[in-house]
Every structure is written in C-alpha cells, then in structure tokens.
Design a protein around this nucleic acid. Structure first.
Lengths: 190, 190
DNA sequence: GTCTATACGCCGATAGAC
DNA sequence: GTCTATCGGCGTATAGAC
C-alpha cells in the first residue's frame, strides 16, 4: 500500500473516531508513522485529505451496495441488508455514531464547502433504496420510503450512540422489519 | 441580565451554531463584547462553560415540557406537541441540526466527560414521552415507544440537515401522526 | 469586575537539506 | 520521498493594573 493510501486510510478512521475538526496533521502523521513535513508532499491542505477520504468512502459504499445487490434475489431481502448494518456495526455505532451522519452533521455545522460532497454518501443509499422500493412496486412513494428508512436508521444510530443501548437497536430493527412488511402488504392490495 | 448569564446565552447559541470544539473563548467574548481576560473571571475553563450551558438547557427543556403538559388535555395532543418542534424549528434544524442530538454526538466522539450530562437532555424527553404513552394505555411498551419517537425525530433532523429539505420534514411528521394513530387503535383493542 | 499584557503550546503550512 | 527546522496565527490560560 502506498504512503498516500495509508494516509487516506488513517485519516478516514481518525475522522470517524475523533471528528474532522479535532483531527490534526500530527494525529494522522503519527498514525502513519511519517513526519509532518513528509505529509505535505502528499496533501497540500487539510481539505485535500477530506476530499480524498470522501472519495474513498464513496468507492467503498458503491462496492457495498453492489455486494448486497448480488447477494439477494428479492428487493425485500436487499432492503433488510441495509437495515442490518446497524447490527453488524453496532459496537462502532454505539462508540462513534454513524460515519455518514456524523460527518455530514459536522460539515454542515461549520458550513464546510465539502458538505455537499459528503451528502453524496447519503445520496448513494437513497437512490439504491429507492430502486429497491420501485422493484417492490411502490413507484410514486419509492423515494419517500427510501428517505424514511434512511432517517429511521440515522435516528437509531444517533440514540444508540447517546444511550449506548444495544437492545434498543435490536428492537428498532424489528420495528423496521414490521414496517417493511406493511409496505409489501399495502402494495399487494393495489 | 448579568454578564455571566450573557456569557451562557452566547455560548449556548455558538455551541449550537458552530459546535463545541470549534467555538473558542474569543468567539464568546466577542459575542458578549467583553475582553478575554474578563472572561476568565466568570469561567475558569471551557468545560465550566459547557457545564453551565447544559444546566441552562436542562432548565429550559423542563419548562418547555411543563408548558406542553399544561397546554393540552390528552396524551396524544401532548405527543404531537413534541413532534411539532420539528416544524416550529425547521429553519434552525435545516441549518444546524438538532441542538440535543448534535451536542451529544460531538461529545460522544471526543469522549468528553460531560457526554452523560448532555444525555440528560434526551432523558428528559424520553421520560416525558414515556409518561404520555402510559397515559395512552401502552404500559409495558411505553418506554420503547418513547425511544422510538425520539429516534424518529432525530433521524428526521439529521436528514433534514443534510438534504436541506422542508417537504421531507412535513411528510415524516405525517408518518409519525399515522404511527401514533395506529398505536392508539392497537391499545383500544386491548 | 473589567481591562491589557503576556506565556506557552499546538495548529496548518513552508523552505530547504538529504 | 522523506526528513528537520521554522514561521505566523490562534488556542487556553495567567498575572497584574485599574
């Protein structure tokens, strides 16, 4: 792995764990075990690292969605794959929150020029979920439902992070499963 | 209003608008129009201001809940009062997110000793909502429903902040109203 | 209570040797 | 490509005059 890739990986993790504002060049340089001076050979500004981290996360997320796409045959199963990241990543979520949500919130708060770029991460999930709901037959409401499920997941991540409660996550996943079932039944009537 | 109170008010606003980490003594001193030196007469450390701000928000929130309690006669109406802050404060939420959620997220991320104190704000809403659901007749599920509604609100605030979308907020409020109606009907059957 | 002056460290960023 | 040395600015925090 090149030094540049190592920097992006370390910055990605530190931005998630400590937040963007709180992470300094020294933190990243220490993590990669290079000097601060060398650091500037690879990235001129802090924003340049953020840009690279967001791009890297976008690539990773596209791969993840593709993987869910290939692993399941029905849209319901695919939507449940999305919901289940709350379980898979529950320890990290309880400790650091949702990586997408917390980055967006932080950048929005300081009015950072890259907030729209970070929002593309949400957009990936939104359009992917919308596609699944269209396949379920909810044509006009597909985008509304996609945003709804995204919001529910964000809310669960946010409260799980504040209350440090795993049982709450499990309960909410059940609620989301019931809601999804209701959606399917409603569509079956039409 | 005393200088101390002015400082707390200015810090409260700045912590909400810019975040805790990003707000410096200079920012607050400028807002109150006092010198940095004078500042330290009132608060020795930055954490001391945070402590005062959290206490102030707790007092304000208790007053708000009491107000909702007095203004409505049915638990359903009271719960809807809670839901409607998303509309009342929608401009601020779109710009800065939820003041409770974003503070909790920020403090959790830097592992700040006052994160549990900030979580008391969520706890106020949780126990108040639980009380309303008990009055609705959902005894065993009251706390689950309280956390559920809190999570839904957090999710809406989070995505509204990222996508800057008012129509989304209105739609989700409708969904929450439907959900609440379903809760009532379910209890009426028992 | 309020001010100015000041200490000291960490920040992002640059210059230049190897 | 990697390093050390260094800059100017801002951060928290203190001392002491008024």
């Amino acid at each position: 792995m090149t030094t540049r890739e190592q920097i992006i990986e370390a910055a990605d993790l530190l931005f998630y764990h400590q937040g963007y504002a709180h992470t300094s060049f020294s933190h990243i340089a220490d993590a990669v075990k290079i000097s601060r001076g060398n650091f500037y050979y690879h990235f001129k500004t802090k924003d340049a690292i953020l840009d690279a981290v967001i791009t890297s996360r976008l690539v990773f997320t596209k791969g993840l969605l593709k993987q869910w796409e290939d692993a399941s045959t029905t849209p319901t199963e695919r939507i449940l794959s999305f919901v289940h990241i709350l379980i898979t990543n529950q320890d990290k979520i309880i400790r650091y929150g949702c990586p997408v949500g917390t980055l967006n919130a932080e950048l929005a708060k300081i009015d950072h020029p890259f907030q729209p770029a970070a929002n593309k991460l949400f957009m990936l999930f939104r359009t992917w979920l919308k596609k699944q709901f269209i396949q379920l037959g909810c044509n006009e409401k597909a985008d509304d439902y996609a945003l709804h499920l995204l919001a529910r997941s964000q809310g669960v991540a946010s409260l799980a992070n504040s209350f440090k409660d795993k049982k709450f996550i499990a309960r909410e996943i059940d609620f989301m499963g019931e809601w999804l079932k209701q959606c399917c039944e409603k569509e079956a009537l039409n």
